[in-house]
Design a protein around this nucleic acid. Structure first.
Lengths: 224, 224, 224, 224
DNA sequence: GATGAATGAGTTTTCATTCAT
DNA sequence: GATGAATGAAAACTCATTCAT
């Protein structure tokens, strides 16, 4: 590193932590998890070598922090987008699906990061903790939504249907992410969404169609 | 070199290659991709350190061979199970789904291996080549099956439906694998299959129900 | 890592580089080029193993740096000794010859090093660059000196004579070095010098005799 | 190595030894001494790996045998060319000089080999034994020749002159070889020879001129 | 607090040598 | 005799971590 390239600015400890985490994620994206060394990270962060051990005890803790950060970004983004969603159950489901397939959450960088962490998760329990994007909170959220829809629709075994709808929707979202990872060039968000809504419209025809949640969303559930 | 320790050609070269590949996969399963060192591998294989460079040029080539082997096992197993499947399109689809969710293909070991390779794939193009389980061949196979079913069912836009069915089925399978990776304790094969067939029965109600392909499979497609 | 063994920055980076280079040269002298390993080097330098890769990227770069250093020492020493030489052409030639055969430049250590590098030069172009002791600069220096002498002496074909004198002198010096390498016990600097001056006095009898440059050096060239 | 490339012919043990030695020398020429491994050698020789240890105890013995072979080739060639030389002392000297500078002895391959062995010689006494091309036999031969010439010429201190002539001639030849090693593109055999004869003609003007030994060689030594 | 020189354990790789076949 | 698979010591190199500055 040439001295003219050095960062004269000092950062607050919070900024430095953030820079290191971002550099770690960048490195994972660019050279892969197993090639992500501390040298690689500090070079990208333009910070000194000792920083990593100053702010994180060791490399592993930095990796865990990076995984945690990724999870937080995922949830933060999703929460943000849910705020502006309608309050009907089908609107919530629609928002989850479309957010999960949207540019903000599903893009080359994030997808590489998620799969990198998942690939290492089983060898690192601390990372494992943060490697499940669609964890219990999200599962509960849409399970409740589907529960309401199923109950309103008056289907027999409504609980079972809601459970399958939840499981299936999450599985489809996961599957679409994998599809993006492996075939990012041919991937289509619209097509992915349509397929998920096809699944949902089959289960709940009054609430979803191929384009998402039905318009006049709140009405059908009460009409006969 | 201690002569008393010398191994007098215990294995054929093919066996040795196989042992090394299996040891590599075992190591990935047990300690993770990034902790899989040559020392780890040869200790597990109970072979000498030089073996790796004798049969594979270097570590990377061994990893690629292991990825390739995993892909071959996947396809070999699937092909085997397809042989004993019925010839109707819905039987083919059913077999693919049930095989893909069956003990042989979906188990803790294989799933860890697949996700480990996928996590590294983008940093290693040679591995990337083998990291897509459900590649074009499988996709074509079920696309053709769904095409026949959609045509027979006489639905409008049958090609589009077939495409969505293919995409959705593969995405669901991927999603179920991810589910198994992240929640292997609560995972249920039956439940996973039921959800997929729920999706398929919604698209093709005459050909699938929640239990799989309809019995009297070949008939419905021509009867009114 | 044992903290009690840690070396608290004993040397500046320049000193460490120098130590490694010297240890490399020592190793080449003692055990030969092909037995000079990094272990051998760092043991001799009493520095840590990682040092080599810290200051030099790799072993080869260290070897090249050592070759370069040797060349610099050669030229530095020669330049130094030329400073205190007379300014007449024959004084310059005399100084070059006597320096080149003197203890400073021609000794067991330096001669082993030179021949080791030359032996490897053709397989390593970076080393080749530094394996010619008597390169263009030195050649030009004495060629100019001989040119002046030949012109002053008024010999026919004075340029050709100067060229042969240059070539012959350098060849004799090279030959004497080889002689020293192969028969260091029986080698005599005086005898080597006398032979070279015998050659020069035959070509330029007014300027050299068996003992070197003629005294009253500047006079004869103008007297008849 | 593909089986179709294998040598089906078997060689006598003498042939195999020779093949290995030649392959060793080829390797030294092509990749240098320190990169000459047994693998490199047996690949070039198209012989099996075990051959080296069958015919030579170990790699070092093969290297020594190769050095020895090179020395034998040198002496064999020189002896051969001396046979067709005149019997006068100056004819002997001339033949030695011209042979030593001739294509047969002085060429890129042989020169690289000689310098490679010399570079390693001081670390390997067995090789050292064969690394002096112009050893005692040759030295004695030309010393005797110069002795006769000096005596015939009736110079004072004829023994000393003969010794210097011997030493100087050998040094010049060595120097010319080095010159060839380092500047093979600009090297001229004619120029090298001329310079040596310039040296000799200065010492023994009645016996040598710039072109070599004087014609009517045997006469001058007796005439006043 | 911040830095980056220094460390050496551990990694991948090379390779002379052995020896069952 | 010949072969080349097998071995493991030792090579070069990487890198997380330490700590004097």
């Amino acid at each position: 590193m040439k001295s003219e390239d050095r960062q004269p600015r000092r950062y607050s400890s919070e900024e430095s932590r953030r820079l290191l985490i971002e550099a770690t994620l960048d490195s994972i994206v660019d050279v892969g998890f197993s090639n992500t060394s501390i040298s690689e990270i500090v070079t990208r962060a333009r910070l000194s070598r000792g920083m990593v051990h100053l702010y994180f005890d060791n490399k592993d803790a930095l990796l865990v922090a990076a995984a945690r950060h990724s999870a937080e970004v995922y949830y933060g983004t999703l929460s943000e987008q849910l705020k502006s969603a309608g309050s009907s159950p089908q609107a919530i489901v629609e928002t989850v699906v479309l957010s999960d397939l949207g540019e903000d959450l599903l893009n080359e960088r994030s997808i590489k990061i998620w799969f990198a962490f998942r690939g290492e998760a089983h060898a690192n329990t601390a990372i494992a903790q943060y490697s499940d994007t669609r964890d219990d909170y999200l599962r509960d959220l849409i399970f409740k939504a589907f529960g309401e829809i199923a109950a309103a629709q008056g289907a027999p075994e409504s609980e079972k249907v809601a459970r399958d709808a939840t499981h299936g929707t999450l599985a489809l979202l996961e599957g679409m992410w994998t599809d993006y990872l492996l075939h990012s060039d041919s991937f289509s968000r619209a097509s992915a969404a349509r397929i998920i809504f096809r699944f949902l419209s089959a289960l709940f025809p009054r609430y979803f169609n191929l384009n998402g949640a039905m318009s006049g969303k709140d009405l059908p559930c009460t009409s006969s």
